[in-house]
Structure formats: C-alpha cells, structure tokens
Design a binder for these strands. Structure first.
Lengths: 299, 299
DNA sequence: AGAGGTTACGGGCAGCGTAAGGATC
DNA sequence: GATCCTTACGCTGCCCGTAACCTCT
C-alpha cells in the first residue's frame, strides 16, 4: 500500500537524507524505515533513493514523489484540521526555544496550545539561537522561537517581539550614581550568552567602540549567567524582562546606563520547504501571544 | 490513523449509503467497515454518518470529509500514476459492457489494458444498457460501455462508435428479392433485445409508423437471439458487425431492406462524482480503440 | 573500526472474520 | 421476522525490534 506512513517516512528520509535520522524522528528503528522505503519502491516499481555514497540522495522519480507526497501529507493534515474537532490534531511538534522566551511567555504558549489542541505534543528544546537555526535547517526542529533576523536561505520567519537588553547586577554589586558609565560597569566582569550569539557580539562591539576594555564571560546556559550575577561574580547582560521569573524578587536589578545595547528581536522561524500544519498552528499562537506580550514590555 | 483505507472505506459507504454495500465492494466484511468508520469518527472526534434511519446519511462534517477524502484518494492515484511505472497501477475496475461490444472489440480492450497496466484487474459485467446505467448510478460499476445517449443526471459520457442495426436471418429463411420490404420481413417473428432497450423500442416504432404488424421476441441474451435466428425461428435485429464473431461463417446474413433502423451509438459512461483514475484510463483506452474501430464499420 | 544501510528472525498487536446482540421497520 | 449496524471474541498475518551481516570510508 502507498499509505501515509510510507509517504511520511519517505519525506523524512528525503529531508534528512538519512535512514537513521528518519527512524529517530519517527520514533522507530532504522530497519523499519528501510523496509518501508523498500516497500514503497517495490510498490511503485521505481528506485526512489540512491544509497551508493555516504549520502542518501533522491533519484528523479524520488524528487517527483517528494512533491506529491508533501502535498498529500499536507492535505491530510488540513483534512484533519478542517473536519475533525480541535482534539483531532495529533502528533509531535519539535519546538526550539531561546532561553529568554522560556523565562517569559513560553509557559503561556504551552498552555494555549494545550487548550487548543489537547492531543498535540510539544517537544521543547532549549538552545542558543545559532544552534536552533542550524537545527531548523537540518530539519531537526519543526519550529523555533529565536533571535533574529533570520536571514538564512531555506528558513521562513515572522517577527514576534522585542526585548531591551540591559545590565543586571546582583545585591553584592553596588554603584553610587543612578546612571552608570561603561567604564564603571567594566570594573566588573560581564556575563552573557555564548560567543557566537548576537548579544555577545553586540556587547563586545559596544565596548570596542567606546575604547573601554571589559572582561566578558560567556555561557550557553542562562541559569549560569544568572547564578554568576547573583553571586556577584559579574554583571549579567540579559533582558531585564526575565528578572522577575528567574530569581527571587529584589535579588537582581537592572542598572541604568548611558550606553544602550540593541534590543533582542525575537522571531518565529521554520524550514521553508517543510511546514507541517501542526507546527504552523503553534507558530500562529506564538505570534498572537507575542503581540500581547509586546505592551507590558514597553513600560 | 486517518489512512487511505479508512478514507476509501468512508467514500464507499458515503457513495453507496450502505455499510454492507461498501463491505462488498471492498471485499471485506461489514463489521470491518463498521470498525473503520467508527475509528475514523473516533480519530476526528466528530460524527460522520447518521445511521438512525433505514438509510445511512452524511452529517455536515461527513460531507466536508467526503470532499477532502475524494481529493486525497484521487491525488494518491495520480501520484501512483505519475511516479510509479505502469505496473504500479493496481486495483479493480468494474466494467459494465453491452453485449454487442463483447462480440466486437472488447477482447482488444482487455488486451490493451493488460499491456498498459499489468496489475490492474478488470471485472467485466455483461448486461443490457439500461441495467448498466442503473448500476453506474448506484456506484455498482466504475465504467460502462453502453448504448447512448446517456442523458442521466449524475453520469458523464463520451461517444465511442456507431454500429448500424440490420435484419439478420439464418439459412432457413430465404427471400426472392434482393431488397426486402417491411411487410415481407414481418412474415417472420423478429428477435431482438429486451423490451426496455433502445433497439426494441426503435423496432416497435418502425413497424407502428409503417402500419405493419410484427411479432417481436425479446431476449436479454444475445446468444439466445442469435440461436433463434440460426434455428430459423425468426429474424434477428442486431448489428451485422457481430455476425462474424458470433456464428460460423455463412450461417447468418444481413438482409437488405428498404427501411432503416437508427444505428447503435455506443458511449463510455461513468459516475460524474466518482471517477477513479484507473477507470478513467480504461475509458481512455476504450475511446482510442473505438476510434480505430469506426473505420472498418464504414465499409 | 565505525558509520550507515540491508537481511534474518521471533514475537506482539492491529485488524480481520465469525457469531451473537440490538434497533427499527 | 427481516434488515442492517454494532459489539464480542479468538485468531491470523503484518510489521516491528533485535541482532547479525554487508559495504564503504
């Protein structure tokens, strides 16, 4: 039978260019994937995949099938969404999230998705934005909420919300003035996200431009960054918006400075060629929530 | 899973308005159909069919699903046809055929279809055209080659070929003249197809118009008609084109008459709402063969 | 040797068919 | 009671997962 399972399996093999990868994505074993593809090729009487080399590649017929299969799978989802009630939307959406979002409105998103589609499972992966971008490109994620702009070819994106970045200090660090200069701040080490992230680069540029030397610690984990700020090791460079959810009240505070960092601009992004309807719906809900979230941030 | 099997089952239940009928059509049992539908309704979380009354009917959601499911099933066939090689076309086409066709070019059609689609099975049902029409309407046949014109709402059709009808006599019946009058013919009983068929009606009208009384035997079986002509019981009113395949050479001959019957116009016809791709292909081949068949008939 | 796809084989479960149960005319 | 769909139940066969095998770098 040319059924949806075979087609979906083929889609994943084609997109990931790997039997193993597809097996993992489909929560099954690699031989099972092998079998389904073999069965499909047998049924259609044509070779769909070339497995000569280290890389799996599509034959001409395979590319043809890819287009048809994508349409069919998409239309099945659309059928389920149109005909079924909300609980009919099933499956797993792999959602990549930047850590800042986790500490602001991600819980709200999850709740809203759960309400709208009770049988839809969301697999959340927290990572820094460049990794999320890579994982979108390698079809390892269906959707991501990350720092933009997302310029990559092969990814689509829509703006979500914007968070100002500020300097955040713990209780042990105190300044006399109300508005602090860059020089004063640079007395302490600064702590922010990994070297390949946008905030790290922006921060380094900021200090280089003003000729002030600053020591910058980088950590991929926001928890670490916050811990270091709380312990007085340094000043965190993060969106102040997350202070209230990530630490006890009063333990951290935003510092008013003369200089300003470019804000975090968040986007929802997904692979251009491969948007499942479920992922699309989650994206729509994210956009809606972010729209509302924008206001409180303007205060 | 909302898979093709469930959808196809639903399509047949919807079209035949019967679980039993669908089960028969799908070569399975009625409980199996019941189960698949129940599973589909369960999966989508909506009621698709109303089984209150004696008649199964579609709910609003059911009608919605019908449209989507038809498109999906059709696109799957199209996928198989586009991507697969010819041997990939599988399934059964229920073909209704008028008896005249059986004795002219049906074997050629079967052969051609077998060549083009070796895995396609054809289930041939021979019957008189009005029955074929009914069975098309009740979705009991996928395609029919029958006497037209096919005016029914709900059926599409395309012209195939035209066979003149003539008076055919066996060896025992002899006339002196070369061209025989209606009166001379009416000395013998006439034998043709059943009362509700076009030739029977045309024949009766022909004699009523000319004020000649004729005794007309009717039989649904062409073999019987021919037998009666061979035995000299009467004169058969059939397309002379089938003489050479249905009896030994010289045993039957066409009689030249002054009057003329309207010719048999054959059409290929199928349910407007429910054309499977396989049936469509068989129809196309039939049209092609009939086109070639037309020439020899002009002699 | 290790990464990745294929082949071999035993076992579990979805879905089937038979048969009994209900509803409606 | 006849017809048609649903429910119950035992069984079969498909497909899966484990594991061994093959091939290429």
């Amino acid at each position: 039978m040319v059924d949806f399972r075979s087609l979906e399996t083929f889609l994943w093999v084609a997109n990931l260019r790997s039997f193993r990868g597809a097996a993992e994505r489909l929560h099954t074993t690699q031989p099972a994937v092998s079998m389904r593809i073999a069965q499909l090729e047998d049924e259609l009487g044509v070779r769909l995949l070339e497995r000569d080399r280290r890389q799996v590649s599509l034959t001409e017929k395979g590319q043809l099938l890819l287009r048809h299969a994508e349409r069919l799978v998409r239309q099945r989802s659309s059928l389920i969404e149109t005909v079924g009630d909300s609980s009919a939307m099933r499956g797993v959406v792999r959602l990549g999230v930047s850590e800042t979002i986790v500490h602001t409105w991600l819980p709200k998103l999850i709740e809203r998705v759960n309400d709208a589609y009770p049988h839809l499972e969301i697999e959340i992966e927290v990572d820094i934005s460049p990794s999320l971008r890579e994982r979108l490109l390698s079809k390892n994620l269906d959707l991501a909420l990350l720092l933009g702009p997302v310029g990559d070819y092969g990814l689509h994106s829509k703006p979500l919300c914007s968070y100002p970045i500020g300097f955040v200090a713990g209780e042990k660090i105190k300044f006399r003035q109300k508005t602090i200069s860059l020089e004063a701040i640079a007395q302490y080490p600064l702590v922010t996200f990994s070297r390949n992230t946008q905030p790290y680069i922006a921060l380094r540029e900021l200090f280089e431009r003003s000729g002030v030397h600053a020591k910058i610690h980088a950590s991929a984990s926001l928890a670490t960054v916050v811990r270091m700020a709380l312990d007085g090791i340094g000043i965190a460079v993060i969106p102040p918006a997350i202070i209230k959810t990530i630490s006890a009240p009063g333990r951290l505070r935003a510092i008013r400075t003369s200089a300003s960092m470019p804000p975090f601009n968040y986007f929802v992004s997904w692979p251009a060629s491969f948007a499942g309807i479920a992922a699309q719906k989650v994206g729509e809900i994210a956009i809606e929530i972010a729209k509302r979230e924008r206001r409180p941030q303007r205060d």
